[in-house]
Design a protein around this nucleic acid. Structure first.
Length: 213
DNA sequence: CGGAGCTAATCC
DNA sequence: GGATTAGCTCCG
């Protein structure tokens, strides 16, 4: 993975998880990987007159790469038979073919991981947005509920004052009945059960006690 | 020219 | 198989 991509990831982490970022950044500084030193073909030192065995590396031709890619497209794993077959077709050492496949699998895996990462990143962003939307919706609904409750309180107070100012038989009969309130604005219907209880029904006719003094 | 990126080759 | 090295090319 290139350093540029690492920077990108750290930037994303710093954005979404600032607390984790601080920790990771510190770890990155601390773990300066002690690079494993490999035996060199070349003897070190400019003035060293020792034998210099340069490892020659020749790039594969476009044609060779094309055939290898096609073969890799068919099957990522390389059976012995196919390895020798390919090698003779390409005019390469079977070991070179094996190495090429190994490196190709590594690149393929790395690419898959990158793809998976960006897919998850998109999913994560979508989820964050949805969460925010739902939270906003909950707030709005709470506000509506509060307004509804206030409205009900107001109606009850009005009713109580009507009863106390006009204590006629009619009104007492009237008070025996359950009173309905249209709360269509809130997608609900309200029903006053008695002086102390009020129920609302949502679309599924589920009654909810708003309060019970 | 130096650094970045790619990749064949090597090491564990 | 994964990690790393080092040859090579390209670009600013």
């Amino acid at each position: 993975m290139s350093s540029r991509k690492v920077d990108d990831q750290m930037e994303l982490i710093s954005y979404f998880y600032p607390h984790i970022y601080a920790q990771l950044a510190q770890e990155q500084e601390e773990t300066v990987k002690p690079r494993r030193r490999r035996k060199k073909n070349k003897v070190e030192g400019r003035n060293n007159t020792s034998e210099v065995v340069m490892r020659k590396r020749k790039l594969l031709s476009e044609e060779q790469v094309n055939l290898l890619e096609r073969s890799f497209g068919d099957e990522h794993k390389l059976e012995m038979e196919r390895k020798t077959q390919l090698a003779s077709e390409l005019g390469l050492d079977p070991h070179q073919v094996a190495v090429w496949f190994q490196n190709r699998r590594a690149r393929w895996k790395s690419k898959k991981i990158e793809e998976e990462y960006s897919k998850l990143k998109t999913q994560h962003e979508t989820t964050i947005i949805e969460k925010y939307r739902l939270e906003t919706e909950v707030l709005k609904m709470k506000e509506q509920l509060c307004e509804a409750e206030m409205e009900i309180q107001k109606l009850l107070l009005e009713r109580k004052s009507d009863i106390s100012s006009n204590n006629s038989p009619i009104s007492s009969i009237f008070s025996m009945e359950q009173q309905h309130f249209d709360l269509g604005e809130f997608g609900m219907e309200g029903k006053l059960m008695d002086d102390n209880m009020f129920f609302v029904a949502d679309n599924q006719s589920t009654y909810i006690t708003l309060w019970d003094n």
